[in-house]
Computed example of a mutant assay.
Amino acid sequence: MLLSIIVTKQMSEKIKDILESGEDIVFKHIGKLDSESVKDVFYSASRISSEAILVDIDVFPGKEIVSALQSFRISRPNTRVIIIAPERKPGDEIISSIVGLGIYDIVAEVKDLDWNEIINNVLLSTPATYSQAARWHTGQFVSDGGRNRERVVIEERPSGVIVIAVAGAAHGLGCTHTAFSLASFLSRSGYSVAVIEDNQRPAFSYFINVLKAKEGKVKDSHVIHGIDIFALNESKDRGDWNFDTLVKEIKAGQYEYVIRDLGVLDSSRIREMYRADEAFIVASAAKWRWNECMDKLDNEFSIIFPLASNSDVDEFSFYTYIKGTAFPYCPNPFSKDNDSVILKLLDPVLPNRRKKRALFEKLLI
């Protein structure tokens, strides 16, 4: 395993066996950092590809670690981040902020234990999920200077609801169209679905008027083709995500799936993609638009290429090493034309359907 390590001198002594083992350590920093050097060290670490990075929270003097980790996640979204936080307790403000970034591997054992064994076990295990880190998350996000706080309501996500995020690599690629296509498929499949607008260019209010949508089953929603949609209220404070302000409505609607139309990717929306159970980036396979997409695409998320053929996607993948799915031309997002494609895209978040064996087959086993 290619491993990066940022730890204190004291922790380096506790994981001495790991440091001297056969692990391929591609980046190593030992010792505490001042506030000015935090970003420099993480920048250096981000320039090297590694499968996992161990980050000892005691290396850092204060809250600088949060913004540094956020930048690292954007640069290296495929690298597993493991936070070493000896003897930290739930409610810790910094750990809460780190979990808000989508980093769920938090190791907070007491200092006197065998940390070589602890870290080895974590490295051999599958990455932690939000449910395993939820006890750390208070919903508060601290900024670099600690002056601004962003309210994140991830801990109030309704139990059992599958959240799907859709974002575009650039304007005009069909992010909203794709969100409704996915929602339409789920609605026709018998699921209760809501689409929430968090786009930089709000359009849902226009849809509501043009399609003469009726009121949905809960407050602030309208129904289109069996899908409850929540338009972005432009009169409200745009500092909050529409999704986070609608937690009570989502609970009241008892939706099985919630799809977020996030608009064009930026750093804040990448973090929202990590909060979702499944995330899609809508991109263009046209050569003249590759430059708009290249720096925003990564195999960490599923990539959808509207209006593209399989050969277009294959060519894009050949030159960029980024894989994706062709989404054939379909002007009506509520039609069934692309159901076979959508079924494959949503397979990770659809219930498993196992065919029951006939009685005589069971008897033969």
Rank of each mutant, 00 (worst) to 15 (best):
M1R: 06
L2H: 08
V7L: 06
K9P: 09
M11G: 12
K16G: 03
D17W: 03
E20N: 14
S21Q: 07
E23K: 11
F27Q: 12
F27T: 14
F27N: 13
K28E: 14
L33A: 12
K39R: 12
S49K: 11
P61I: 11
K63L: 12
A68V: 07
L69F: 10
Q70M: 13
I82K: 08
I83H: 06
E87W: 06
P90Q: 00
G91E: 07
E93W: 07
S97M: 04
I98L: 01
I106D: 05
E109G: 11
K111Y: 08
D112F: 07
W115Y: 11
I118W: 02
V122W: 03
V122H: 01
V122A: 07
S125G: 13
A128Q: 01
A134M: 07
F141G: 03
V142C: 03
V163K: 07
I164R: 02
I164C: 03
H171I: 02
S181P: 03
L186D: 06
S187T: 15
S189A: 15
Y191E: 04
Y191F: 14
R201W: 06
R201T: 12
R201P: 02
P202L: 12
A203M: 09
S205N: 10
K212F: 06
A213P: 01
K217R: 15
K219Q: 11
H222E: 04
G226S: 01
I227F: 08
I229P: 01
K236E: 15
D237E: 13
R238L: 09
G239W: 00
G239H: 01
W241M: 13
D244N: 12
T245H: 04
E249Y: 02
I250A: 03
V258G: 04
I259K: 05
G263L: 08
L265V: 13
S268E: 14
I270S: 09
Y274D: 00
A276R: 01
A286R: 15
K287I: 14
K287C: 02
W288I: 05
W288T: 04
W290P: 02
D295E: 07
N299Q: 02
S302Y: 01
I304V: 14
F305R: 02
D312A: 13
V313Q: 10
S317C: 07
F318Y: 05
Y319E: 07
I322W: 00
P328M: 15
C330T: 13
C330D: 15
K336P: 00
D337E: 15
S340A: 12
L346F: 11
L350H: 07
K356F: 05
K356W: 05
E361H: 06
L364A: 11
